[in-house]
Write a protein that binds this DNA or RNA. Sequence first.
DNA 1: TTAAATTACTAATACGTATTAGTAATTCCT
DNA 2: AGGAATTACTAATACGTATTAGTAATTTAA
Lengths: 333, 333
Amino acid sequence: MNDVARLAGVSQTTVSFVLNDVEGANIPPETKDRVLAAVKELDYRPNALARGLRSSQTHTIGFVTDRIAITPYAVRTLEGAQDLAWANGYLLLLVNTGGDQRLKQIAVDMMLERQVDGIIYATMYHRPVKPPANMLEVPAVLINCYTDDHSIASVVPDEVLGGRTAVETLLQKGHRRIGFALDSNPVPAAVGRLVGYKQALAASNIPFDPNLVQTAESIASGGYQATMALMSLPDPPTAIFCYNDRMALGAYNALRDLNLAIPDDIAVIGFDNQELIAADIAPPLTTMALPHYEMGQWGVQYLLQLIENPEQTQQNPPIQHILPCPLIERASV
Amino acid sequence: MNDVARLAGVSQTTVSFVLNDVEGANIPPETKDRVLAAVKELDYRPNALARGLRSSQTHTIGFVTDRIAITPYAVRTLEGAQDLAWANGYLLLLVNTGGDQRLKQIAVDMMLERQVDGIIYATMYHRPVKPPANMLEVPAVLINCYTDDHSIASVVPDEVLGGRTAVETLLQKGHRRIGFALDSNPVPAAVGRLVGYKQALAASNIPFDPNLVQTAESIASGGYQATMALMSLPDPPTAIFCYNDRMALGAYNALRDLNLAIPDDIAVIGFDNQELIAADIAPPLTTMALPHYEMGQWGVQYLLQLIENPEQTQQNPPIQHILPCPLIERASV
DNA sequence: TTAAATTACTAATACGTATTAGTAATTCCT
DNA sequence: AGGAATTACTAATACGTATTAGTAATTTAA
């Protein structure tokens, strides 16, 4: 900046004023042009460290996650966050901790050392978390997770509505006996979708039959087992709602082994919209999409509000935002 | 640091010496303990901006990519890079540009403003690139891509060896007529794998039959078409090598429609090891894995060498590292 | 015993910016 | 015409650290 000032024949202060477009500085256009010309001439690039040191903001956001790539579609959270940050002139500082609590602590410390303006904490599965305490030294938002006391702003998918929508889709096609191949782990997604399943049935005055809910591991083999169990019922379902697309893939395998055609003999609906599975199998799978990209966007957008407008944004208790899961119609219903 | 110094009854210089373990500073253990106690007492955390400003290194690496999430398994590149950076006390500053050349330029500028110690440029598909010129102001490494003049260090997968290994696997099982469902785009992966296909045949003295190579779009429907074309040959193959797992999924669909059993009637081998597809379909798909995680690791590891040991590491011409694609045996061969 | 070397520190400074408090010179108002 | 207001700047400083060049006090070597 001093070099630029010298070349333009002004002071470093003036250069700073010009580059930051400081109002009330009264720099006439000719001077501005001279400075800008010098900037171009010298190929000057500001030093964000010095700027950050002086103004104590870095336009950088820390993004902490337990495991980036374990579920591919969840990477879209990162993408949504990155896109929105980028659109606002922010960059993301990334750490995935692999789930180790001590690492999380250290990760946040490293980010705080680098003076991030805020921190996003995202999990790949929807679940409760205990984020490291030091995270609260700056504005923070949780994505796809929440603390039990809801003391931190968060975004999560609407599992209940998602489950209800899936089942309502089947009901609308005339199905009355609807099986549910459910994750045996009582994670928030499983609990919520089951609530939605029951809500939809109740709204159509269909009694809940516990035999129609078969739990298993939430992978293809689990979907296979659950489907086999459902189809061996004395009064088997005409449609199966699968907890996720992996289980739906298992259901496809099972129904093929039973010589049942989808969707003619039996309808299948999934959850997650894992494109590589859902769009490519035969027939293409109708499924519910998780709003990962949108959660990433919302998280960063809200974080930026917290950063730039703390008083107006901060709510008490902190906001818990819920995003719907859109239905992706293909050919399996 | 001044607060710590005051509490410990020493100068800020001494605190700096203690915290950085400066050799030749001759700080006796008692003084060290006093300083460390003050650090703990005050919960002191160094300011990385000030440190970076003074010492001109930030322990931060820029990671630029065209599109993070388009191919889920490719996210493992990011994961490998992040893990190795983390292990060495570095953090990753992330941008995905969506492929816009101007954005790349700006992205790199934003990273340079933040004084990154080096830059990784990664693409999700193996291909030639023209990285922005300003990237070379700091040490740089390309992952899964290369410049035509090979003027920048890079890591790429060994497509030729991968193709050869896939075909050799089929040859070893006794197959003599091996179809190839190939991407119709002449991208490096397609070209390389075809070379490997020919090499393997030649090594077994099997003449190359152009009819056995059917090109199509590298998605499930393309795999379906190519498989149908291959199987309607007067002398159809007994095994099909698919350019990628998505095409293999299409091949599965086609073979099912033809009432052919895998692997009894016909063997199928894929490429990419997209776990969600390969492991979950019936039968599980034998495929070649791309070394994404390893490329990410190698890229950062080499970049750190470039940063910390420029003279010893720098080669002329720059190193072009090639990583093998391991065979993942499942049940389709 | 005394000069030289070592030990255990500290004062001062630079890194590159943003910002505050000013100051001449000009313009405006009555 | 003369004071007030405005314009167009600049000098100086602080942000928090790492590093250089020292300096007293103590220990060692001859």
